[in-house]
Design a protein around this nucleic acid. Sequence first.
DNA 1: TCTGGGGTCCTAGGACCC
DNA 2: TCTGGGGTCCTAGGACCC
Length: 321
Amino acid sequence: MGPPAVGTPLTPPRQGSRASGDGDWVLHVDLDQFLAAVEVLRRPELAGRPVVVGGDGDPSRPRQVVATASYEARAFGVRSGMPLRLAARKCPDAVFLPSDRPAYEAASARVMATLRSFPVVVEEWGWDEAFVGASSRQPEDLARVLQARVLAETGLSCAVGIGETKLQAKTATGFAKPGGVARLTRRTWIETMGDRPVTAIWGIGQRTAARLHDCGVTTVVELAMADHHELARRFGPRTGPYLRVLGLGGDDSPVLDEPHVPRSRSREVTFEHDLTRRAEIDEHVARLATEARGPVCSSAGGRICPAAFGRCPLSERLHPS
DNA sequence: TCTGGGGTCCTAGGACCC
DNA sequence: TCTGGGGTCCTAGGACCC
Ligand SMILES: Nc1ccn([C@H]2C[C@H](O)[C@@H](COP(=O)(O)OP(=O)(O)OP(=O)(O)O)O2)c(=O)n1
Ligand SMILES: [Mg+2]
Ligand SMILES: [Mg+2]
């Protein structure tokens, strides 16, 4: 989440048209151990076992990472983004599986279709999550109905967060994992999140946290109380004040049901051994560019990015043919 | 153990125009 | 002859997320 498209609301989250009017709620649905769950669905004998999905599924090969790990594998310390070989050390008995995008895309589509079958507004966010805008006296009841329907239709379980803002709902989902329902509101935001580090907020990572630390802001409540002039000076006229809005639990930006229109497409690959010959590099760059561009008649652009870890990635925008 | 691949949005700065 | 300020459009790169 970046700054709001227009203006810079400095007031605390307020009642919004769709987000937080009386009886209006934002729900955030996030599937549990998504890729691993999809794999277990097709191979039920894996249920209860540590499962690690990532790369080509061969943990003896370098330059591959974990996409996700089942909760059983997480108990051994395996996490998304971790080198596959490290995962194999931490959990030698895990079942390692290659990533199968088409299967996950199909599962994701079924989940989204299930959510859209309700009289609610659905905003997809990535493969395995969605914001749901709904009017409900008992949002927890609605959450459980959504969970039951998703499970019945797809065999997948999910957690649901409830809030007056997207940020509250998204954050609440973390407390609902796995399979549960949790609510976070303006009233409970500071008591729940106040003492946590600013990185607990969706959209604030290590770099921003380090810069905030330089101006004495470490926790969420400190961010919520920070001087927005100071933040504006350090982070810019839009980003600075918006950071404080995040500290306060987010704004009333609505759940949008517009069909997702991809902004970009890209292809990139990391080679087991660095490429050294110029001709070889050119060959792969050309191939990736062609793949990114897609079918001849496609009107989408894309990026190529010949890069090595720790070096400068180079990229260039491609244009519709 | 040695760090993927696919995205999103924002900002800075250059080109160009008035 | 030099210069200003503002606006729009574009891209590379940064930061973040799943
Ligand atoms: N660094 C990451 C993080 C996530 N993913 C993929 C694999 C995950 O299965 C999926 C969803 O991400 P989540 O953060 O929602 O993680 P999970 O759904 O796997 O687990 P959780 O139950 O914690 O949501 O996105 C990935 O490829 N690389
Ligand atoms: Mg998930
Ligand atoms: Mg997710």
